[in-house]
Simulated scan of single mutants.
Amino acid sequence: MTIKIATAQLWVHDQEVALDFWTNKVGFEVRADVTLPELGNFRWLTVGPVGQDDISVCLMAVPGQPVMDDQTREQVLDVVGKGFANAVFLSTDDCDAAYAELSGRGVDFVDKPEDRPYGRDCGFRDPSGNQIRLTQLFELPNQ
């Protein structure tokens, strides 16, 4: 038996804004975009990296009633906006080139590429505030 990660979730403030960011700026592709009227027009929206078909990121709208009461929904939106609810870790074979390309597409980085003990790393946030790390891992000796 094998268990794999198929989908990870990010809370987003606005699915259309998130979709535009992840597809047009980061360069991911749409994996699923399904609206279910029988569930109050719930929208299952997923994106993923081109060429890595076995994993996707669900861009999940923060729900209201009956899933979350209004106060909880506002708290979740606030925590997401501050960058403390979620994080996505992306890898690349060339951090500096990826930084230059994504910056050219309008991604606003909070950290420029910098060497760290594990690799070359930089970070940005999506329009909802989620933290995204982009890392070129160094080959580390086996310990």
Rank of each mutant, 00 (worst) to 15 (best):
A97G: 00
G119A: 02
T2G: 00
T35F: 04
V34N: 10
L140G: 12
T135Q: 05
C122G: 14
W22H: 07
A85Q: 12
V17G: 03
V47C: 08
D20R: 01
A100Y: 03
L39I: 08
N24P: 05
C58T: 09
T72A: 05
L140K: 15
F28V: 10
Q75P: 00
A8W: 03
I55S: 10
H13F: 00
C58V: 11
V110C: 11
D121S: 13
D70V: 09
G40E: 10
L36M: 08
A6L: 07
V12N: 03
T23A: 09
C95V: 11
R116K: 14
W22E: 07
L19I: 08
L19P: 07
W11P: 12
V88Q: 06
Q52W: 06
E29V: 06
P49I: 02
R120F: 15
P37T: 05
L39F: 15
Q52R: 07
V17S: 13
R120H: 13
D78G: 07
A6G: 11
V12Y: 01
T7R: 04
P141D: 11
P63V: 13
V50A: 03
E74L: 14
V80D: 00
V76L: 08
V67C: 02
C95D: 14
Q65W: 05
T35E: 13
C58Q: 15
P117H: 10
P37Y: 01
A8M: 03
N86Y: 07
D126F: 14
V67T: 15
S91D: 05
Y99S: 10
C58G: 05
K25L: 11
R133F: 10
G64W: 03
C122K: 15
L59K: 10
F124V: 06
P117K: 11
L10S: 08
V107Q: 14
N86R: 08
S56A: 12
W44P: 12
Q65P: 09
P113W: 03
